[in-house]
Design a protein around this nucleic acid. Structure first.
Lengths: 209, 209
DNA sequence: GCATCTTGACTGAAAATTCAGTCAGGATTA
DNA sequence: TAATCCTGACTGAATTTTCAGTCAAGATGC
């Protein structure tokens, strides 16, 4: 069979999951063919059933895999960095000219779209989204001490939703990477400027632009 | 052609396209079965092939149809209404507890998700989105005379992206209608609040690609 | 030599697509 | 006016295709 032989189980499993991610990024969750995944991974179709029981199992495992990829970003330690830059990085890192970032984004986008019709996918998606919101809210709070936790949570929710909306347009080629990032930056600036809660006072926050 | 024939034909065509939209909203583009569409429309499967050649043709026609449905909204005349309320309405109308609104939103969401993999769908989608942006930008400019056209365009682009992002979470049941609308309202308030004009506000970006 | 992995041809159900035929109604002819 | 021809929308059973899932048997490793 394949010249390069993978001996360990886990290595093949990872190959399969990556292959599945690639297939999903290529033609969507709905377009993913089990046989294509097997071919992409360089294994036989039967092996997928041995490991994952059925298509749904493969899908679930793959989505969890994608989920992990998406969560395990953020290499920069929050404390060592200017907090207001930290927020920017966390959000902007979702949109850039990098094959892996794009691949994950496509897959993530698919996952979201699919979940509308396959409610059993909702749980991990919801979990990850909540976590992401929390992370952003924390970073926002750290960046601007005048902001209440509640306010930060709301702003975080708006910003993460916005990232998803902008990503959609970016992924289908409607806007460029540059423009997407610039839009996002503009929105961050605007949303983290003086809040409506306290009329038009407050000018000396650390984050003011 | 006799009028009768034309009416009959177009009536059935419309029935088919509406049936397809319903099926897509019910189970997604990939979940759409041509026999189900035929049954839903009350015609035979063969008729779909007679008119649309194949499944892909039916899909393309349906997505164009959805596109049209989505564009022809906005019944309230801009002039008769408080402009700042007008913006709100235009955006908030995309998210509400109404079967038709939801159906269109689901279908529209599917269309967007699909376009990532079927590039030939991009053009009409992009056109509709641009139009929507323009409409919102106009409404924004009308609501706040101090705003430049450029600024309004950017804000509009952010807001429409945000609507799409929030819609995604709303449609998959992750947030309630109330919360979605509230988030959107909050964002509108924040993004349209009058701020002291900052020096480097200008942008050299064009819209689109 | 036992358990774990892996293969790939095969199966069957479901879905897409085809096509021979029906029918309504309009045109042509006489 | 009526008999005949013609067109093309429409039908639905039959056929083809697609794909998830199975299985018997071979490899690998401990």
């Amino acid at each position: 069979m394949s010249t390069y032989y993978c001996q360990t189980m886990s290595e093949k499993l990872v190959r399969i999951l990556n292959a599945a991610t690639t297939c999903i990024a290529r033609s969507g969750v709905r377009g993913m063919r089990v046989n294509d995944v097997a071919a992409e991974a360089g294994v036989s179709p039967g092996l997928l059933y041995y490991h994952f029981t059925d298509r749904a199992g493969l899908l679930a495992a793959t989505l969890e895999h994608i989920n992990k990829q998406v969560s395990k970003d953020d290499p920069s330690s929050p404390n060592s960095v200017d907090p207001s830059r930290h927020v920017r990085h966390l959000l902007l890192d979702e949109i850039k000219d990098d094959a892996d970032v794009r691949r994950n984004s496509v897959a993530w986008n698919e996952l979201r779209a699919c979940t509308i019709f396959e409610q059993e996918l909702a749980e991990p998606l919801s979990r990850t989204t909540t976590e992401w919101n929390r992370e952003i809210a924390q970073a926002l709070a750290a960046a601007n001490e005048g902001t209440s936790e509640e306010e930060a949570a709301v702003t975080a929710e708006i910003l993460t939703s916005l990232v998803e909306g902008i990503s959609g347009r970016w992924l289908n080629g409607f806007i460029t990477t540059e423009h997407a990032r610039w839009l996002l930056t503009t929105a961050i600036d605007s949303l983290t400027a003086t809040r409506p809660a306290s009329p038009q006072e407050t000018a000396t926050q650390g984050l003011g632009k």
